[in-house]
């Protein structure tokens, strides 16, 4: 019953500039897929299309379970998640931030608190759970983004530049979190980075996005 993403002939252009050019790829194996590419190469666009947040101009991102195509509805969207580069922390406590996705799924009370506490602990923010999320450092904010996604246990998790603009210590912590996240055999992690060393440290499968095309490393 595992969720498989199939990107088929995805094309996207902004104005007259083509960004993605007929990209097809299946993410059948679990583990960490890393997409590398220069700034503006279309990595984030590809992730947003695959996370069903943006429509492509051509092609489609489809999800299947045992070969059955799933409808692109809210139920499917709640089985996947994307951690944005800016995270988008809500102006409330760390704990409430992590509870948000659980509440959307109708998980409340002790069950929600337990899941949130586990996710916060997983990213090492336990001592800051009552602190306002907008007062966190950029590294801690990235970890909060991971905790929010982790709490809802997505089967496919997209991470858009999860360790950009953070210090070395936070980068190490974030990389460790990602490794642990992908350790769950039911989960596929698809992330972007332009840091080649980080890509090599983390990836099970590494791809390059160049001139709108995806190629294996």
């Amino acid at each position: 019953m595992s969720l498989v993403l199939r990107a088929s002939h995805i094309a996207k252009q902004y104005g007259r500039t083509p960004v993605l050019n007929n990209i097809s790829m299946s993410f059948e194996e679990k583990g960490i897929y890393v997409l590398m590419g220069d700034n503006g190469s279309g990595k984030s666009t590809f992730l947003r299309i695959c996370a069903l947040l943006e429509d492509p101009d051509g092609g489609s991102a489809n999800y299947e379970v045992n070969g059955t195509l799933l409808p692109r509805d809210i139920n499917l969207r709640r089985r996947i998640s994307l951690v944005l580069p800016g995270v988008g922390a809500f102006n409330t406590s760390v704990h409430q931030n992590v509870l948000y996705g659980l509440k959307l799924r109708g998980i409340k009370g002790n069950d929600a608190s337990r899941k949130a506490a586990r996710a916060i602990d997983f990213v090492g923010l336990d001592h800051k759970k009552e602190q306002n999320a907008l007062t966190l450092s950029s590294g801690e904010t990235q970890r909060l983004g991971l905790a929010r996604a982790l709490a809802i246990e997505p089967e496919v998790l997209f991470l858009d530049e999860p360790a950009a603009f953070v210090d070395a210590r936070n980068r190490e912590i974030i990389e460790e979190i990602i490794r642990n996240l992908a350790g769950d055999s039911r989960r596929t992690v698809i992330m972007t980075t332009h840091n080649r060393r980080q890509a090599q440290r983390l990836s099970n499968r590494l791809f390059f996005l160049e001139n709108g095309n995806l190629r294996p490393a």
């Binding site: 996370a51 947040l53 809210i74 969207r77 709640r78 998640s81 994307l82 951690v83 944005l84 800016g86 995270v87 988008g88 922390a89 809500f90 948000y100 996705g101 959307l104 799924r105 929010r148 996604a149 809802i152």
Partner: peptide, 11 residues
């Protein structure tokens, strides 16, 4: 990004 973040979490 707040609106996008809410959608990524299943809103």
């Amino acid at each position: 990004v707040i609106r996008q973040a809410a959608r990524t979490l299943g809103a």
